[in-house]
Design a protein around this nucleic acid. Sequence first.
DNA 1: GATGAATGAGCCTTCATTCAT
DNA 2: GATGAATGAAGGCTCATTCAT
Lengths: 208, 208, 208, 208
Amino acid sequence: MPAEVAEPRWRRLPEERPQQILRAALEIFGEHGLAGARLEDIARRAGVSKGTIYLYFPNKEALFREMVRSTIVEAIVAGEGIPRLSSAREQLLTFMQNYWAFVRTPSFSVIYRVVVSELHHFPDLVEFYSAEVILRGQKLIAGIISRGIETGEFRPIDPTVAGRMLISLFTTSAMWCCKRKFFPSLQARSDEQVYDELVDFYLSALRA
Amino acid sequence: MPAEVAEPRWRRLPEERPQQILRAALEIFGEHGLAGARLEDIARRAGVSKGTIYLYFPNKEALFREMVRSTIVEAIVAGEGIPRLSSAREQLLTFMQNYWAFVRTPSFSVIYRVVVSELHHFPDLVEFYSAEVILRGQKLIAGIISRGIETGEFRPIDPTVAGRMLISLFTTSAMWCCKRKFFPSLQARSDEQVYDELVDFYLSALRA
Amino acid sequence: MPAEVAEPRWRRLPEERPQQILRAALEIFGEHGLAGARLEDIARRAGVSKGTIYLYFPNKEALFREMVRSTIVEAIVAGEGIPRLSSAREQLLTFMQNYWAFVRTPSFSVIYRVVVSELHHFPDLVEFYSAEVILRGQKLIAGIISRGIETGEFRPIDPTVAGRMLISLFTTSAMWCCKRKFFPSLQARSDEQVYDELVDFYLSALRA
Amino acid sequence: MPAEVAEPRWRRLPEERPQQILRAALEIFGEHGLAGARLEDIARRAGVSKGTIYLYFPNKEALFREMVRSTIVEAIVAGEGIPRLSSAREQLLTFMQNYWAFVRTPSFSVIYRVVVSELHHFPDLVEFYSAEVILRGQKLIAGIISRGIETGEFRPIDPTVAGRMLISLFTTSAMWCCKRKFFPSLQARSDEQVYDELVDFYLSALRA
DNA sequence: GATGAATGAGCCTTCATTCAT
DNA sequence: GATGAATGAAGGCTCATTCAT
């Protein structure tokens, strides 16, 4: 009985199993929604069998919830790297650059879809999303704008309004860029051009 | 078989049946999406039996498509009453007022959901929506903006960009107003206030 | 992660494994039946893992069969200590005392359940049970009764009939005593009283 | 296409559907127990499709419960035709004859199985069975016996004990008769002979 | 030997669709 | 035209069984 010692012992790390499944769930739920997605497809996409999903999640709905929750959390964590200092205008530009990168991320568009179409069936997730994403984002932006107003860089405007406008413009534009072919006016434009137009428009609205 | 004879038996005119069903479909599909909706619920909401739906629509998907299509058409028709004349700024304000009324309509929010979450499974509907709604809207707005630029009322800006920005701001704000309780910064604001802020912001971005 | 090495790690002797498992199987199958029992539960009850069961039994059904068979064998072995001699009446009383103790045993009630509800799916076990339990019991009792009839202690009666009656009365009464709370007439009676009533009734039926 | 003409066209009365299903459930659950039975088999036996069962019963367990409950009720109703009058001994004989007929009924043996093996998972059904079957039966028998003791036809004996003994002997014997081939001592006996032996034995135990 | 993560066949349950009335 | 009972394919979920460690 040679004690079971110390081999690298790698075996597809079972600790990754839930992550694999959640990633697959993101794609499939994002494509088909909660009701329309088949567990079988999620399993196949994750490279596991149907039964395996049930080792980590008690049922389809719980998987869906956890997918939404964990994706949001990831986004929050990723967004933590807060921009900082210099002029408010510089800070705002940095923020917009990060935000533009984020909203064109595949998981953002999935979450956007889910939030729009199904989240109302999960009040606790709505609550979570509202507090952790919307409120948090609002505060961040409003802080920058307020500073800019104080320094005279921006015209006086309700900072929460400015926040809403920014979020609105960025998220919608990002979604449109994903579906560029259905928006004739976008077909000839790169994401960068769209971004430049966004920034130009937004800053124009804030200019003193 | 003594047939159930001869009472005048008044009924809602059968020509209205499809409309009843489509209205019910709008509500139920809007709430649950295509996969999540049950024909039985649509039938109950429409006040008819399950079988009746099949007298007018060959299957669930066709009902869904027709619901989407007819709702869009209605919106277009309703929007036909195009504003007109006077200064570009006046015309824009009139358009925005109509548009704001429209985007807060229940059927708009349903269509918005559907477009975001499920329309990509129906390329022909996407095509239709793209051509009849987006393009048409773009043109309408771009026309007004162009005129305003010519008259010097607005600063020079790509009219299609201005169009996109307007649509983005209005649709998103309307959706948020529906869910006001999850947006702390909206709780104390009426729809009218939100509208005023929108107009102020948008016109600021266009001012020369 | 220094591997968890080298404790003497005492364990129950492996030769006992099958016994542990069979005991657990007796409880779980007794509670839920063959189809309703989960191997996982049996494993947990036995303090081993699911896989371990398969080291000793090829599959669920085989475990069930072996559980039934071994429990029956144990009962037979335990019953071997045959009463003996003196008057037939004395011998009968001794037998009844043993039998009463046996039928109130937990494994008897499990086997009773299984025999009633599922054994018909296992003809060979039925055969085994019939030959080793019923026939053997019948013969034992019939022998005692026959001697009693010869000695004039009992009235003339078909000894196999008397055997059936005894088994019937004892097994049923024992089952009822397990569920005393559902039998109002038993609630105020101890097992001993029930036994006394049984003996009184049975001997009355045999009295010359 | 020879038109499908003029068959009496009677279509199994839908009011009978639940009965058909319950009858089939009695057979299949009786054979395999709750966990072991497949709805598909019940449906096939009932001559309907799987889905039809769900038009009348919300799920498998509910069907099982209703099957048990309704079978018990039927038995009670059938037993209502209470014997009556004349000597206690005559009344007892009449009762025994009815009871013997009943316990050899197929639904009795199913219920017996179910009661023994699965009813403990349904405390409310146990309650119901206890009150409506056991208690009711006990009272009926005890009444007859009491009268016989008063008239001196039977020896003094606790009437509830006599009741238990009668039930025990009859039910067990009936079950054995169903499985006659496994009981060598029964193979040469008809049900009537077994009945005669039962009566003889029981009356012997009661004789003054 | 022992483990328990993984598998996938099987069954319960739902619901779009049909059709006799 | 209208109904709703009936159907059965589809999909969620369980659990006996396997096997890499």
